[in-house]
């Protein structure tokens, strides 16, 4: 097995995969720091599940999957905002049951994708992602989305940090916490969308939570945590792409799913960071 198979960087699908993986990992890592600190892992997970219906819908309507995922996760973010994210943070049964209904609708849409549109791989692409098979133009759109998301995150950074420390205190200091929460959920929806493009809707939590939780174990300041999380995420995403590319030689004629490698790497990174902290 060669370290870098010839053609790794010159292959167009690989370039596209690296670009999408980078965009998703950088924004999700940075935004994920606040998701973890605010105890909103559940909200991120819920948005991802809801966005799956959007991904399935995109096939049916023939629109860009980016648009499909994003429109539904924004809708989900608005619903969460209306419900109050603090309450949904627990194991709220109502939220779980409504999500179940959403999954049922996703099932229907995916079924229609296959039967009406003949998109046989829709279920895999939407739920588990298929990074090597994304349309070529998507890489640039994802990179732009990530850039916009990172700028937005920087813009709300200080009030968001204060509100994550203590919501009441932020209010007393004059932060419009409602507006802040809504903008933050919108950015979260964008991060989830990009991650769903990379590793699929039900796996996108990995890029959002994993690098951030690992970075929080190691970093000494919030900015350092965001930077480290973005880098760890990037490492996992690119490492996953590389391993998947290599896997072509392991089981002849067959590429292992990129998403498997990315999620596995994220778990390894998290476990290593936990052990490093304890040591």
């Amino acid at each position: 097995m060669t370290l870098l198979q010839p053609g790794f960087f010159s292959s167009l699908p690989v370039q596209n995969a690296l670009l999408i993986g980078a965009g998703a990992a950088l924004l999700s890592g940075a935004a994920g720091v606040f998701t973890v600190l605010r105890g909103q892992s559940f909200a991120g997970h819920a948005l991802a599940d809801v966005s799956a219906a959007g991904g399935a819908m995109a096939y049916l309507l023939g629109i860009s999957p980016l648009l499909g995922f994003f429109s539904l996760s924004v809708l989900g973010a608005l619903a969460l905002e209306a419900l109050g994210t603090r309450r949904a943070a627990g194991r709220d049964l109502a939220a779980g049951i409504v999500l179940g209904a959403g999954m049922g609708i996703t099932a229907l849409l995916l079924y229609l994708d296959v039967t009406v549109k003949g998109s046989a791989g829709a279920a895999v692409t939407v739920m588990f992602g298929s990074l090597f098979a994304t349309p070529p133009g998507l890489g640039r759109a994802v990179a732009l989305g990530a850039l916009a998301g990172l700028l937005g995150l920087g813009f709300i950074y200080r009030p968001l940090l204060l509100a994550s420390l203590d919501g009441e205190l932020a209010k007393a200091d004059g932060v419009n916490t409602r507006l802040l929460g809504a903008v933050y959920l919108l950015l979260l929806a964008l991060a989830v969308t990009l991650s769903a493009m990379a590793v699929g809707a039900i796996l996108s939590t990995a890029l959002l939570i994993g690098p951030a939780a690992a970075a929080l174990r190691l970093a000494r300041s919030p900015v350092a945590a965001m930077g480290l999380a973005a880098l760890l995420g990037l490492g996992c995403a690119w490492g996953g792409v590389w391993l998947a590319y290599q896997s072509y030689g392991w089981t002849p004629g067959h590429v292992w799913p990129v998403s498997f490698f990315i999620t596995a790497l994220v778990l390894v990174v998290y476990a290593a960071a936990s052990l490093a902290r304890r040591a």
């Binding site: 200080r158 174990r217 000494r220």
Partner: peptide, 26 residues
């Protein structure tokens, strides 16, 4: 403060947030 134990904010950073934590921007 209802703090996450991993919250990587030093006392100094927190006091500074009192000065500018309510402002959006860079």
């Amino acid at each position: 403060l209802q703090l996450d134990p991993d919250m990587p904010v030093r006392a100094r950073d927190f006091v500074e947030l009192g000065l500018n934590g309510h402002r959006f921007g860079f």
